Simulated assay, not measured.
Amino acid sequence: MKNILIAAITATFFVSCSKKETQSTLNQTDSIKIIDSINAARTKINDSIRSTNYFKDFNGDHKFTHNLIKKSGSVNFKKTEGEKDHYKVLGDIKSGKDYVHIQGYMKIVSEKHMNFTGSISQSISENENGKIDIRQGTKTFLSKDGGKTWRLQDMVNGSGFVDYIDIHF
């Protein structure tokens, strides 16, 4: 009888131990799933904060002008992924043999300043018979009218003449 009682207690002990281990594993799995879902939600929030602009959205096509070209052209701003206030910029103005081409990246740094990094090439027949002038590097566009018009601040071209290259929003 003692042996049967000891066997029953031992069997109960092993059954209860194995149940606890199963429950513990289930609890750990549930905890991992909860932590993973919290991390996914935090990542989504952080990504949305990182890519939200500080300044107004410039995405899209805008009017592009040069003071010596009678027609206006167009410049396209395309927001770059994952960066605040950064845009890929591409645009042209063409009238006969005269043209201006802009290509690069624009970063909005304040309500009045944009920094353009890339190249602006132009050929204006009034400037040394259309000699090609290329401005490269980082250039600043400034707005004095509350963001409606942005003017290139590197105004003197390679021929020594002043150009007004504007982007209108």
Rank of each mutant, 00 (worst) to 15 (best):
I49W: 05
I4P: 03
K88C: 06
K56Q: 15
K112L: 08
V156D: 00
T140W: 01
K71H: 06
K97W: 02
I93E: 09
S24D: 15
I35P: 02
V100D: 05
S110Q: 13
N53S: 14
F161D: 00
S48W: 05
T43M: 11
S16M: 07
R42Y: 09
I132L: 01
D166S: 02
G137N: 07
Y99K: 11
T12A: 15
S51A: 15
N127G: 05
S95F: 03
G137Y: 08
L5I: 04
K56A: 14
I6A: 04
N129Y: 08
S16A: 15
Y99R: 09
N127T: 06
F14V: 11
D85L: 10
E81Q: 07
H66Y: 13
I4A: 12
D47W: 10
K79M: 04
T25Y: 02
H168E: 11
C17K: 05
Y87S: 11
G147M: 15
G73N: 07
E21R: 13
T22L: 11
T65C: 00
D61F: 07
S121M: 05
I69M: 03
F58R: 13
I132N: 01
A41I: 12
V156H: 02
N39C: 12
F13N: 11
S72C: 03
H101A: 06
F64L: 07
T43G: 13
T140M: 09
G73V: 03
H66F: 10
S72D: 15
A8I: 15
I108C: 09
R42T: 10
I132K: 06
N67K: 14
T149K: 03
K107H: 02
G91C: 02
K78N: 11
K148F: 05
Q136M: 03
I167R: 00
A8C: 14
T80F: 02
G130E: 07
D61W: 04
N67Q: 08
T25Q: 13
S125D: 13
G137H: 05
A40M: 12
L5Q: 04
T12S: 13
S143H: 03
G160R: 00
N39Y: 14
F64V: 04
Q28L: 10
S123I: 01
S125I: 05
G137V: 06
N59M: 05
